[in-house]
Design a protein around this nucleic acid. Structure first.
Lengths: 240, 240
DNA sequence: ATCCAAACGTTCATTTTTTATCATTTTCTT
DNA sequence: AAGAAAATGATAAAAAATGAACGTTTGGAT
């Protein structure tokens, strides 16, 4: 059992039992009490638990709650299926650009921490999910777009420009009949363009609600991509 | 039953019964009356209860709502008080650097969106809270530190170096007798240094548990700051 | 005012937990 | 494969929590 696994287990136990003692945890996890104490110290430094003489309790910290994770009521089965397909395309050890779309953030749910993947994203959802799953992650930084969980602007651009990835996954507001992918956000479009330029392979995640829709800002054309991952058979009329 | 649990239970009982006696609590919680007295002393020090000869009652503060009473976050009370003080120091329209410490992130809870404040932070908690409250926010970006919610590294550094703020609030692992502020994380220390250099006013948030502790990396000296916000009167012996 | 019982605080011994130090094992790096 | 770094466990010393004993204070009753 690796250390992270034990730390997670401690939190799990506390979520069930609310309070626990050092000895109890030591017996449950088959380690010495002193090890549990060291674990708890770390958890406390990270603001996850409250320790006291002899035991621990969960710190239900409002800061810890990541609203977007619990708040996925529009539980998109289709988006998840797409994300699962996408996750299957990621080889061990690779580096991956992810944009700030919710579709793409589902990819994180399908990733195994053991595959040693590194993600780079301007999405707060994706970053949070990666952190929870102990997947290596970089944030591009940038300005928080109001009513969204995307980071954009000069800071994000500069960060993305300085990095190169093996794969990129992104989504967007629409894709036209003839394969033009467009979005309504200028800043996110710009960022996606740089990500596209700085990665080896590119995949567009597209649920069928986006087919045939067009918006103001042009991201790229489907022919420039390695694949369009869609829940309906997709082919664009050649743009000649 | 661990101590935290007992303290929580006392608050719970008081919420139901409004008033209680030492003996009553002692019987309910299977400990000696002395122990209850010692517990109550602690709770009183944290402003959670009022004791008097013969009994206890919940402290209810007439002027301000005290959400801490209903939420049982005994150990965070002090941090919140510090954060509240800090929030009071932020003028409308200003731009503020916040580090990734949990103490500092509580400042967001005390900020009014109407004050049109802009924050810049490398903390994921702070960013999340700001987004929720529709407070303008910039993320520095950077590498996610495992088991933490801090962003660091070259990306974060570059972002911070390119920005200037009116105020900076930060915390750290320790402050020594003679006023040296230190931390155990090198990368976060470096980032704090740049934030300090790039802001007009600087404030250190320090709960008393940090007094007299020293760590490897030196952030700054208290004399370089505009104030140290602490729950205990703080003054450092002058370093000649 | 005086007295009394209950409540309180202090000191101390006991038990339990934590910290510190060191040896051992495991893991990572080169 | 060898060496360095990290994690773990064992042991002893330090610190904390608890409860008992005993003296002091409090609030009321006489």
């Amino acid at each position: 059992m690796i250390k992270n696994e034990r730390l997670d287990k401690i939190i799990e136990i506390l979520e069930k039992e609310n309070y626990s003692t050092v000895d109890h945890l030591a017996k449950l996890l088959f380690v010495a009490p002193v090890t549990i104490r060291r674990d708890l110290k770390k958890l406390e430094q990270n603001g996850l638990v409250n320790t006291c003489y002899g035991g621990v309790s969960l710190m239900h910290d409002p800061n810890k709650e990541t609203p977007w994770i619990t708040r996925k009521k529009f539980n998109n089965v289709i988006k998840k299926q797409l994300a699962k397909k996408a996750a299957g395309l990621i080889p061990s050890g690779s580096t991956v650009f992810l944009d700030a779309s919710s579709t793409v953030s589902y990819i994180l749910e399908c990733l195994e921490p053991e595959k040693n993947i590194t993600i780079i994203t301007n999405g707060m959802q994706a970053l949070s999910l990666a952190t929870q799953k102990h997947i290596k992650a970089y944030s591009t930084g940038g300005k928080v777009v109001d009513n969204s969980f995307a980071l954009t602007g000069a800071i994000a651009m500069r960060a993305v420009q300085s990095m190169y990835a093996n794969l990129m996954f992104f989504s967007s507001n629409g894709i036209s009949q003839d394969g033009h992918i467009t979005d309504q956000s200028e800043s996110e479009t710009e960022l996606r363009k740089v990500m596209l330029a700085n990665s080896d392979k590119r995949y567009f995640l597209c649920d069928s609600s986006k087919l045939g829709k067009s918006f103001l800002f042009h991201v790229c054309h489907a022919s420039e991509l390695d694949d369009v991952i869609c829940d309906q058979p997709f082919s664009f009329s050649s743009p000649i």
